[in-house]
């Protein structure tokens, strides 16, 4: 092996170790940080970064263009899906947490008109009103006609 190959493999190795380091940081964050939403900060982002770095290492290690294309596709999908998943989990955690438990000392959403709990309650109240205004028997009758 010549010098260039050694350098190339050293770069791949450093990228792999760096990626694994960020994966480990993500796992440590999930264990050490105080509450579920803060844990998500570590898991979703450090995890995606670590995984992306390992994939870049794979793309650099193998010479073919097909490996490069596949690694880029995997990284792009990771970058697209991570925020969506994080957003959904975050909202679910926030909505299911009881309002009196301290998730953030400073909170501009809790109790405001946009609070998911408040919105769910309002949507439910609206649904109940609709039911009260329109007796279920009427619904069945229209269903028979059509």
């Amino acid at each position: 092996m010549n010098m260039a190959e050694h350098l190339h493999q050293a770069l791949v190795g450093l990228l792999a170790v760096g990626g694994a380091f960020f994966c480990l940081v993500a796992a440590l964050g999930v264990v050490r940080l105080p509450d579920a939403l803060t844990r998500m900060h570590a898991s979703s982002k450090a995890g995606a970064l670590g995984c992306g770095m390992v994939l870049v290492a794979v793309a650099l290690f193998f010479p073919g263009i097909d490996v490069l294309a596949r690694a880029i596709a995997a990284i792009l999908f990771l970058l697209l899906s991570t925020p969506v998943a994080a957003h959904m989990i975050g909202r679910a955690i926030y909505a299911s947490e009881p309002p009196d438990s301290v998730i953030a000392p400073y909170d501009e959403l809790r109790g405001s008109a946009d609070d998911p709990a408040v919105r769910m309650r309002q949507a439910h109240a609206k649904g109940a009103e609709k039911h009260a205004a329109q007796p279920p028997s009427a619904k069945i009758r229209t269903g028979d006609v059509t």
Binding site: L37, M40, H41, S44, K45, A46, A48, L79, T82, P83, A86, H87, G90, R91, Y94, A104, E108, L109, A113, D114, P116, R119
Partner: peptide, 21 residues
Amino acid sequence: TLTPGTLSLDVSPDRRTLYVH
């Protein structure tokens, strides 16, 4: 969401406010 330290939680129904954790 991708920038660590911030996480978008919810967009208000009138789409005027983004709530960020």
